[in-house]
Design a binder for these strands. Sequence first.
DNA 1: GTTGAGCGTT
Length: 92
Amino acid sequence: MLKNIFVGNLPFSATTDDVRALFEQYGEVQSAKVITDRETGRSRGFGFVEMPTEEADAAISALAGYEMDGRPLRVNEAMERRERKPQQRRSW
DNA sequence: GTTGAGCGTT
């Protein structure tokens, strides 16, 4: 079973490769991605990592508050992606 | 600088 991990408070200098390398220390990273602004191409300061549940838990507890470029990372299980209750849908 | 893109609106 995979767990979706949210990684927030990333420095804009952090890339997908940086995030992957960081989490690979704690397990097999299925996928890693730093979200970038679709128009400007700049980092949005957060990203996602998918790992097996147990390894994800280990990574979360180990990397929560990890300081990267002076920024304490926020690491926890991700919220939603696109599927969620109708009431919670965004108002785009 | 905090939860992915974008169906086209709960």
